[in-house]
Amino acid sequence: MKLKVNGKSRSFAGAPFKRLIEVLREDFGLTGTKEGCGEGECGACTVLVDGEPVNSCLIPVCSVEGRRIETVESLGNPGKLSPLQEAFMERGGAQCGICTPGMLMTATAWIKGGGSAAPGAIRECLAGNLCRCTGYQHIVDSVARAVKGKGGGKRR
């Protein structure tokens, strides 16, 4: 079957009910997407399917045949971070980093969908992504900063 992953056409010939997360990590080598619970509770495995955030640990690859998949690897690279990643650097949105790819993908959909910078609304949007390090506040600050069109910039 064919999928479009991070703008590239990919084909997959394995078991059709293999979980999307395993196809991404094992078959396509995209290990940026993380598995935290395997039951759709923690959101660490969040990727975008046609722009919508989904838990890639819960969906069989056959259900996304022909669709557009975006993972954290699509955002930026260490030499050139995306504005959202810049905002996370600036406001301390990543600590241990394991929830970060999922957070970034949920936030990417939020920003692309015209989501607001209001902290309460951002908290609601991120409620499906668990983080145990940050207490969320710096993640909320980071997303709000990105919504306002600010990435990196002046240090506090």
Binding site: R25, G29, L30, T31, G32, T33, K34, E35, T71, V72, E73, L75, G76, N77, P78, L81, Q85, F88, M89, E90, G92, A94, C96, G97, I98, T100, P101, L104, R155, R156
Partner: peptide, 24 residues
């Protein structure tokens, strides 16, 4: 006393940091 940026932040934010399950 300065809020310098996290050293390993860029690798974590780009999904490049290798956790044990990512190691091939």
């Amino acid at each position: 006393g300065v809020s310098h940026r996290r050293k390993e932040g860029p690798e974590k934010l780009c999904g490049l940091a290798k956790y044990i399950d990512d190691l091939s």
